[in-house]
Computed example of a mutant assay.
Amino acid sequence: MQFNNYEDIVQMTPLWKGDRFPDGRPRVADSVLARLRSMSIEEVWRLAWMKLNNYQFQGDFKCTHSTMKPTVGRAVTATFVPIREDLEIAMMRQAKSQGMKGMYNQWVVDSLVEDDVFVADLFDKTEYGTLVGGNLATVIRQKTKRGGAVVWGSIRDVQQIRDIDDINIFYRGFHPSPIRDICLTGFNSPCRIGHATCLPGDVVYACECGVCFIPPHMAEEVAEDAEKVHIRDIFGFQRIHEGKYSATAIDEFPWKIEIFEDFMNWLKTDERAAPYRHLTWEKERQLIIDRRDLEHERYNLDSCRKDLCDV
């Protein structure tokens, strides 16, 4: 086995057809990342869920900084297990053969580039599971510019990290101990974060509510869908406030045709809609004509749900 292997990364991300980094990770465009930074987690979560990607979200994180804006970037993954001597010897030999020096977490951080997010499965370890401290956080900030880390484990030096601007670390617990008794088994390989799966090059969206991993081949489509939900909500909130439509009428989507046409006219004139006028709405118009609700259809596909008509 090899750490951070180009051929392995390409093989595990076959649906991505765009540019790649030298390590093989999909390189989702900077413009897509910028669009996602203006969206909420419910907006970015929606489309992948509708396409049956259920294992993309994990909550229950703490974070080192305010999350007025989400942390959005491309995943660099690391998977750790509890230490075992024979495995440790094998992994260290492999790392040495690839020219890696220092500690496991340092190898991964040294590979980061702008807009990366370090995503690490540390099997929810707290004591001696402190993957990131003040020094590594400083390096992460310097390399990623506005990135950060998602740690299914713990961190240390929280006070120091909070003094670093333009970074956010999402973590499970805190402990003052140094990192000990772990072994790296995967570097840019599939990574489990709680109930979610992250692959190298996934778009990471992290905020105070939790973390969402977006497959790179879906990222641009997710950004477009999120923007549509976002601008529809702005319109809907305004019309509810005005008393023109009920909450029930706005919550139902596809809307009735008269609400949809009102929305189309509003898009042309309201200044808040200006950043979203590049979006096209033919598919939504067709859903209204067909009276189809894709979210409801996805809900009906959930295997755990008993059809209400049978209750």
Rank of each mutant, 00 (worst) to 15 (best):
D251V: 07
M218L: 10
Q160I: 05
E220C: 06
K228S: 02
L36A: 01
R192T: 13
M92G: 08
V203H: 06
G134V: 10
E261I: 08
D166N: 15
C209N: 14
E258I: 09
N5R: 10
R25P: 00
T77N: 02
A196E: 04
E208F: 09
V311A: 14
Q56E: 04
Y276W: 04
Y205K: 06
C309I: 13
V158L: 14
D19L: 05
H296W: 10
P200K: 00
F118L: 11
D290G: 10
K228D: 03
T280K: 09
E258H: 15
F118W: 07
R285N: 06
L294A: 08
Q56R: 14
W281H: 01
P70D: 09
D166F: 05
V109S: 06
T130F: 05
Q142V: 03
D60V: 08
D124S: 13
H278T: 10
K96Y: 12
M68S: 12
Q94S: 11
V108L: 10
G59M: 02
A120C: 15
K101I: 15
Y171G: 06
P70S: 07
A29H: 12
I89Q: 13
L279P: 01
E295S: 11
R156P: 00
V32E: 03
H195I: 08
C183D: 02
T77V: 01
F118Q: 00
V109N: 04
E227L: 04
M100K: 09
W266C: 08
L136T: 05
D124Q: 12
V139T: 14
N54V: 12
V229P: 00
V158A: 12
G153Q: 04
R239Y: 04
G73V: 11
Y171Q: 03
R172H: 08
D166C: 06
D181E: 13
F260K: 05
R93T: 14
K125Q: 12
L308Q: 11
Q11M: 13
S40K: 13
V139G: 03
T280A: 10
E42P: 05
I89A: 13
I182G: 02
R272F: 09
R146L: 07
T126N: 09
E127S: 13
V109C: 07
R232W: 03
D116K: 02
G73D: 05
Q2Y: 10
Q142M: 11
Y276N: 05
R141F: 07
I9E: 00
A219Q: 00
H241I: 12
